[in-house]
Amino acid sequence: MKVTMKDIAKKLNVSINAVSIALNDKPGVSDEMRLLILKTADEMGYINEKRKYLSVFSKSNIAIMMQSYYADTGHFYSIVLRSIVEEAKSLGYFSIMNYFDDSNMELPECIVDRKVAGIVIVGKISDMNLNQLKQTGIPIVLVDFTSLYDSCDCVLTHNKQGGYMISDYVIQKGYRKIGFFGDLNYSLSFQDRFIGYKEALINHQIINDYFDDEYIKKYSFLENIEKYIINNQIDEVVKILKSKELPDVLICANDSNAFAVIKALVQMGLRVPIDIGVTGFDDTPLCEKFIPPLTTVQVQKEAMGKEAVARLVDRIQRKDYPKKTELLSVKIIERASVK
């Protein structure tokens, strides 16, 4: 049995006229009601039956895409996502959340059916999958990730600045044996944070130049790490830390790494920060509650979501405008994990 406007109106307890106004993109109903009517019409299969309303429907939706890994690990992206959804709603857009596996991505139905005006990709995505999405012609904005393969609109944290600032901070505290802990193959963000760390060491004449690797090799842990962080395998982190001489402080690539490192150090019988200092990056909610509370670099998570939506709306309206990368500044949050 075919769905009618009367069916939609009855389900929402509104007039048939209100449903018609919303579907035809005419003034007379609130943005919130318009989104609700369009969403309900789509869920009931009406949009697919009446393809003439598809273009109206697509103007009211944005797709959010994120690797399922981030959702499974309680990543700080939850704050970014909430900000995206709230900002999109305030501008009259309904958000459709899509999780994907980067090793085997299938285009979401809403994108295949062209029921969205734009796409926000949160976190890492392979160049191959990004290219597949770009071929749809739907505007895309990347959040906390950039592609070296092709130009895209991006909203990023100034990771290099953060890596420099937190390293400079511990140097000012008197630390001289300073290591970096983070899998550089895991993300460009980690690589940028590591570059900032190295620049601070150079500027303070702790190392001579970028090619002075002896100090880095002695005190840093840079590969084959992230799989153990993801799976919370603290025993493996202990093995990694025991593989070389420990520095006086470890600059961790993100808070998750820092939490794992502190757990491993405690398991090794060491005290933070008395025996060794530890810092993080992101300022996730757990930082305040952790023992000891974590000194970290605060990322503008809510601003990241808002800026992503603003950039996407601008791209929807001006498709030929030059691509833009926006860097959001950071600041250090001092807590008790550093002497």
Rank of each mutant, 00 (worst) to 15 (best):
M5I: 07
V19L: 07
N24S: 14
K26Y: 05
L35W: 06
L36M: 14
D42Y: 14
I47D: 04
K52H: 15
V56C: 13
S58H: 08
S58N: 12
N61Y: 11
N61M: 12
Y69P: 02
A71F: 14
D72G: 10
G74C: 09
I79N: 09
V80S: 04
I84D: 02
A88M: 06
Y99C: 09
Y99W: 10
F100T: 07
D102Y: 07
R114E: 13
T146N: 13
T146K: 15
V155Y: 02
V155K: 06
H158A: 15
K160Y: 08
G162Y: 00
I166C: 02
I166W: 07
D168S: 12
I171E: 07
I171T: 09
I178S: 04
G182Q: 00
D183P: 05
L184C: 00
F194G: 00
K198W: 01
K217A: 13
S220W: 01
L222Y: 01
I225F: 02
I229M: 07
E236D: 14
E236Q: 14
V238K: 09
K244C: 09
P247G: 07
V249S: 05
L250N: 01
A253S: 09
N254K: 00
L265H: 08
M268W: 12
G269Y: 04
V272N: 00
V272T: 04
I274R: 13
G277L: 05
G277T: 03
D282V: 01
D282I: 01
P285F: 08
L286V: 11
Q300V: 12
A310S: 11
L312F: 10
Q317K: 15
R318Q: 14
D320N: 14
T325L: 12
L327I: 04
V330F: 01
I333M: 14
